[in-house]
Design a protein around this nucleic acid. Structure first.
Lengths: 202, 202
DNA sequence: ACCTGAACACCGTTCAAGT
DNA sequence: ACCTGAACACCGTTCAAGT
């Protein structure tokens, strides 16, 4: 019908992502549809596809923002504190974020990269930045460690914690334990870190 | 159109679940639709809803079967073997199952219980039976442990391993480590078990 | 009693046609 | 050049009407 110069390409992208964010926060991932986004910003469905390749692409950008916000929400590791203290800070920060942004957090991990293609670099960078926080907690604990080993340790620990929180979120741990997710995470982290020195002989 | 006594209520349930299983194996969760299931078994869409409450209910039953099959696929812990050996057996069995049944495994964990209602007892029993395998591996390692603590340890360890495998599956660990999931799991399990004795003073 | 299949209220995505 | 909105090919779910 019309050519509208009300909003630039970039502005439209912003508006779409904001609308998507609101819709997910309010109604979970099933509330995020191209039609609803279009409706929210007062454009037609087709407009979404002028800016994003498809819904998957849109979700990937949204998840990028969530990663960014998570990074800003987590406390910075303090070299003067103990490893356990620092890790506990990250843990509590992460759980707090999950609680406050449950639906955004869910869509962050529910989303599976569509095909065999790699995730874009800007996305991997954001993930890497987050893992860097864990590196910085563990590094002083094992100063002579190889960079590769450090990354494996961070990855294993982070993935382990994530597993507990994500299974707790889908209520698949209720059968098996009444313990709070935070306590299970602490059990995992403490034992893992305590056992690390015996296992990795650096 | 017709009353068909070709198949009993139970037979229809079987046929539907088999068809659902095939569809998921072949095309992932997005290939599982009521219409396709109906088509596969030669009935109308409405028939599905005579047997199951809705698609969620159908998926829950399908997941029950997957849990059953996973239990049968895993090796039984051997009291004569070491904890590490036994756990490695479970680990390799689990990874093998995931590889051979990727789409069924994905739908098992993607599925989030719809409302606030509890999971049915028959489902929780199947999960519990699986966790029991881990209990039996750890128990001889710490014979004087409380039942509750044992369950927490099993849960934390299982969830941790699950986290690694599930993040690896969605390629969210590639950025951070080139290590194979099995190796990351071993790192987690070994350090955790090694550190356990220092952490839990039973 | 059992099963149908049309109907309702939705989807993602495309693309010829308008301004 | 930009945006539309109708169109296509799908969804889950229901329920009056058939046998």
């Amino acid at each position: 019908m019309a050519r509208r110069v009300d909003h630039s390409h970039e502005e439209l992208g912003e508006m779409i992502l904001s609308a998507a964010c609101e819709l997910v926060e309010a109604g979970g991932s099933s509330a995020l549809t191209a039609r609803k986004v279009a409706n929210t910003i007062g454009y037609s469905p087709g407009t979404i596809y002028n800016i994003f390749n498809n819904l998957d692409d849109l979700i990937l950008r949204l998840n990028g923002r969530t990663l960014e916000r998570l990074y800003l929400h987590l406390p910075r590791p303090d070299p003067d504190k103990s490893v356990e203290n620092n890790f506990d800070g990250l843990l509590r920060g992460y759980l707090e974020f999950v609680e406050q942004n449950r639906n955004l957090w869910r869509i962050l991990f529910d989303h599976r990269p569509s095909t065999e293609e790699e995730l874009p670099e800007w996305y991997n960078d954001k993930v890497s930045k987050l893992l860097g926080l864990i590196d910085r907690v563990i590094e002083p604990h094992a100063p002579d460690i190889h960079q590769n080993e450090l990354r494996e340790i961070s990855a294993a620990l982070w993935a382990g914690v994530h597993g507990i929180i994500s299974l707790a979120d889908s209520r698949k741990l209720e059968v098996v334990s009444t313990a709070a997710p935070l306590d299970l995470c602490r059990l995992l982290v403490r034992s893992f870190l305590s056992g690390l020195t015996n296992t990795v002989k650096s």
